[in-house]
Amino acid sequence: MLHSSIALIGLIVAVFFLARLTGDPTNLYLPIDANLETRQEFAKLHGFDQPSHVQFVKFVKGIAEGDLGFSIRKQRPAFDIVLEAYPTTLKLAFTTMTLVITFAVTVGALAAYKPRGVFDRVASISSLSTASAPDFWVAITGILIFSVALRWLPTSGMGDGIEYWIMPVTVLMLRPFGLQVQVVRASMLGALSSAYVKTARAKGVRERRVIYVHALRNALLTIVTVAGDQTVGMINGAVIVETVFGWPGIGKLMVDSVIQRDYAIVQAAITITASAIFLLFIIIDLLYVALDPRIRHR
């Protein structure tokens, strides 16, 4: 926990100073064609003419008060804009991760049950393929097939109907699913060949119980670690998926702000995302404690 808070602080500091070191901050905030007067006025208004340590104190104070800068393009506080974008991404990420874990645990456990069997081979080839597929290309090909050619699903946009969710969630699932299947398979293989599983079988425990209670419970630690990393990685996928499908989430907001050069939003988005990741790591640590009695008793 101490480690991740150091990481969090480090990242925020790095973002602040990197932005100041790479040149005139007005370049970052204002459009490229802004004239000199506008720049000077802007610099004065936002304190860019002050030495950077003064600016940094102001920046940290701002974070404490929930003030993360002001978007010039949108004429609104950046914090509000970022907070509005978050629920979309969170919904998308949550749905995807739930499906990924459910499917991956089922497929991975079945594959590990009969290693080198037909199911195992199909599972490992398909998981390798989904882990290798470029998500933006799958998204575009999906639009081509299901929206343009077959007209089954909408090309883009976010709606209430399930048809809007099918493609984005599927695309976002691909890579985490492929990876997770391999992880589940490997850790289940390890667990199934362990002494406690042999003991359970010798005792006459039912096979289904052996797999889903004895082995899976012990394989869960690795699965949780990987799932945690993948939840963080969801943001990576969200950047692509939200851009392609036009979802108003944090990923699209980031890319749009980068392209429109709206630095206040980029900075706010980073700060909030980093804090969210920090929270997530704490949750994962707590999950470890819940899953592994050895950590609990330490």
């Binding site: 480090g10 990685g233 990576n236 995302t273 790591f281």
Partner: peptide, 10 residues
């Protein structure tokens, strides 16, 4: 840790 705890694409 700092590098790894943040989404790489972002």
């Amino acid at each position: 840790d700092v590098v790894q705890s943040f989404p790489s694409l972002l």
